[in-house]
Amino acid sequence: MNMPMSPVSNLQEKVEQAVAEVGKVVLGKDKQIRLALCCLFSGGHLLMEDKPCMGKTTLSQALARTFGLQYSRIQFTSDLLPADILGVSIYDQNKAAFTFHKGPIFSNLVLADEINRTTPKTQSALLEAMEEGKVSVDGNTRDLPHPFFVIATQNPVSFSGTYPLPESQLDRFLMRLNIGYPDPVAERQLLLNHDQRANLVNIKQTLSAEDVSAVQAAISTVQTTDTLLDYVQRLVAYTRQDDKYSFGLSPRGAQALMRCARTWALMHNRKHVLPEDVQTVLPSVVDHRLRSVADSSGRNAEAYSQRLLTEVDVF
């Protein structure tokens, strides 16, 4: 893969390639793949939530491969300790000093599987690292590599033996995706073929870390007009005023929404954001940041983001 002259101009093409590559292992989930790419291009962390065995892990691995990033995978269990992620200092007898053994978090892409299976203590170790882009162990602060992504997966909260992520920390994920069951066509394909996961190794790298930085640099050039910003503000205001939500969208949430919408526009080779862009990314960006009154567990938020789309007019 050689560096193109203008990485953003042929972004759409590259995205199509990447979607095709990832689509080899995750069938019929183009929209989710695109949204996941959008999240990573925007420089945010991704949370995938669905019932077990829905292909979350496969998707995240495929994404990692298509970016060609160095990645590590952490399987979260209830006995996982913060040190298992961050790394430990071990006394080296030969050097008569402590040497730090980096944990799996020191890689460009971290796949955190079933993040809600581990204790809050361990969760917060990861989430703090995500937030700050560095790790403090034994009083020394160490920078994480750049770019740094976390693709976390989790089971729905109601499953037993889980420690739900606190609301404040959910905010650190730019998007939350639900994979959902495959559609009948994809399902048939799935049944016909052998295990898709075998294809993982065949996935070619179509994107690079440079693409990500180029997109992030280009995001600020995407035009957002007053007409559009008015719409976004109305959406945000609605979540804050409607009594179906126990709390509204934070300013950070609104920023995240705009950031994703910009990236989405770029991914479609546009230099301006349309309301469609906002509407497409809205459920993934907003769902985990909203909490409805009737259902305080945070489930079913999808229905509420849908309400946003149908009740707030574009103009």
Partner: peptide, 9 residues
């Protein structure tokens, strides 16, 4: 046009 329906849609 439905409420919330963007122009392209």
């Amino acid at each position: 046009r439905h409420t919330g329906e963007p122009p392209l849609q």
